[in-house]
């Protein structure tokens, strides 16, 4: 029994964090949101070059052949940076669905982002930047190449996640992929992304609470603020081991995989909403402004908390596993 990551896994994640902190600042994130299609091709190329996008692509397709345990810390770092674009859909769901096909090459070299709508979502994210779309069809998974979207692109709450409606999901290529496994992968990767995002929001709130003074002292010295943040940290830190455990369950395809993934996503979604609300409250009116960078992270959290199944959806799946189906 050993519940820890290898030094290689830690080092890869640390390298990614360093690159993102240096190159992908909040100012650059804001620029991506406010101009163009919510995608940063230069960042995407950088992630491809580092091997981040190809972590889960099999070695036979030029990827690194990693499993979910190798990947989970990387997704967490991308969440900490609120990296835009179809991160989860490409590097996890896409890599699992398309590994072993010729399409995998476009993930490895960064040329072809992939997106997905495997839960029958009405609004499909990232279609403007991802030509390949994975959809659930007839109990399996189809790949649509440049599908037609209805009525053009829709602006969403999260500027790094533009939406569209697909009216016709027929005519795709049937893949030999397990739909349940892919939806679990999407939920778990989103949970890991949310964990990074939550950590970042609390860090931003902590910086503000140390800096902002009222009544002659930093507001972080007031117990009301301390306890607000401690409670949010509690939720975030108790989601962490559930996410790491689910990564192991996924990598080893254990019988409890679905339960563990759902527990991770339920806790991560709830924690992210709590972190966002707490961080906003710590900021006061400044947090309610467009210019405050916190909004970029909060809106990402609000968009992703329900994505790939809400906390409630996943809690019910845990209930079915633990208490028996209804």
């Amino acid at each position: 029994m050993q519940f820890s990551f290898t030094s290689d896994q830690h080092e890869f994640a640390a390298g990614l964090r360093e690159m993102l902190e240096r190159e992908f600042t909040a100012a650059r994130l804001r620029h991506v949101w406010e101009s163009g299609d919510g995608h940063d091709p230069a960042l995407w190329a950088r992630l491809a070059e580092m091997g981040v996008l190809s972590m889960m692509v099999p070695e036979s397709e030029g990827g690194l052949g990693g499993d979910f345990v190798d990947t989970v810390l990387l997704v967490e770092e991308l969440g900490r940076a609120a990296a835009p674009g179809p991160i989860v859909e490409t590097m996890v769901v896409g890599a699992l669905a398309l590994g072993g096909t010729t399409w995998a090459a476009g993930i490895v070299d960064g040329s072809t982002p992939v997106t997905a709508a495997l839960l029958g979502e009405r609004y499909v994210p990232h279609t403007a930047v991802a030509p390949l779309v994975l959809v659930a069809h007839g109990g399996g998974v189809d790949l649509l190449d440049h599908p037609v979207v209805d009525g053009g692109e829709i602006e969403g709450l999260d500027g790094g996640r533009r939406l569209a409606i697909l009216t016709d999901i027929t005519g795709g290529t049937m893949l030999s992929a397990d739909l349940d496994r892919l939806t679990d992968a999407g939920a778990l990767a989103t949970a890991a992304y949310l964990l990074g995002l939550s950590t970042r929001m609390l860090a931003i709130a902590g910086d503000y609470a140390r800096d902002r003074r009222q009544f002659g002292q930093p507001i972080g010295a007031f117990q009301a603020v301390k306890h607000l943040m401690a409670d949010a940290l509690l939720k975030v830190e108790f989601s962490r081991p559930a996410i790491y455990r689910a990564a192991w369950s996924f990598a080893n395809d254990t019988p409890d995989r679905a339960r563990d993934v759902s527990m991770a996503k339920a806790l991560a979604s709830d924690a992210a909403l709590k972190a966002a609300r707490s961080a906003l409250q710590v900021h006061g009116a400044i947090g309610y402004t467009w210019e405050c960078d916190l909004q970029l992270f909060m809106k990402k959290a609000w968009a992703l908390a329900p994505a790939w199944g809400s906390a409630q959806h996943h809690r019910r799946r845990v209930a079915d596993a633990v208490l028996g189906p209804r």
Partner: peptide
């Protein structure tokens, strides 16, 4: 009530996992 019982199961399981993480550390 079903949701509340499930939440507690997740909390107890989460505490167990958190402890294993701490002990491994």
């Amino acid at each position: 009530m079903r949701d509340a019982v499930t939440d507690l199961w997740m909390q107890a399981e989460g505490y167990r996992l958190h402890t294993y993480l701490t002990v491994t550390k």
